[in-house]
């Protein structure tokens, strides 16, 4: 991006956080209502793309958790696999999900292995799609004149 867009630059900083918070809301909401890991991951990718538009793909990649889309998505898949493992303790099949509640006095905190799985999906989608989107943006940022495709006959 040759001319730095000042407004985009300034707005991107707070907006990055806001978009990520929104993605977390969508993620947690998915427990009982429309939402969930996949959509939340897509929302998170928009934050990365926003950062890439303002500061370049390399900076956006550095801002990802673990600083690498590959590691991020691998951690996501790993979480998904791990969420299926506690079933082993109860002699159930792999990926049998467990629910429980932790009493907090005034209310109770509902926990489940499904949430772990959903977080895994979230990280995996974020990592994989940010990887695609950033490499597309990267390819788009270096258009030298002689690299244009030749006109077809």
């Amino acid at each position: 991006m040759n001319p730095r867009l000042v407004i985009l630059d300034v707005v991107a900083r707070p907006l990055y956080v806001v978009v990520l918070l929104a993605s977390l809301v969508v993620l947690l909401r998915g427990h009982n209502e429309p939402g969930g890991g996949f959509i939340a991951g897509l929302v998170a990718v928009t934050a990365s793309v926003l950062w890439a538009l303002a500061h370049g793909p390399a900076a956006a990649e550095a801002r990802l958790p673990f600083r690498s889309p590959l590691i991020l998505s691998a951690v996501g898949v790993a979480l998904g696999v791990v969420s299926g493992l506690p079933a082993l303790l109860f002699g159930d099949a792999f990926l049998t999900h467990l629910w429980g509640a932790i009493p907090l006095g005034f209310t109770e905190l509902k926990v489940s292995t499904v949430l772990v799985f959903d977080v895994g999906v979230y990280l995996c989608v974020w990592g994989a799609l940010a990887g695609y989107a950033l490499s597309l943006l990267e390819a788009d940022l270096t258009p030298a004149d002689d690299e244009r495709p030749e006109p077809r006959r």
Partner: peptide
């Protein structure tokens, strides 16, 4: 998504 990235790189490399 993969096809798009691949296509872009291919067009760039092959120049057609």
């Amino acid at each position: 998504c993969f096809a798009l990235v691949l296509m872009l790189r291919l067009i760039r490399d092959a120049r057609t």
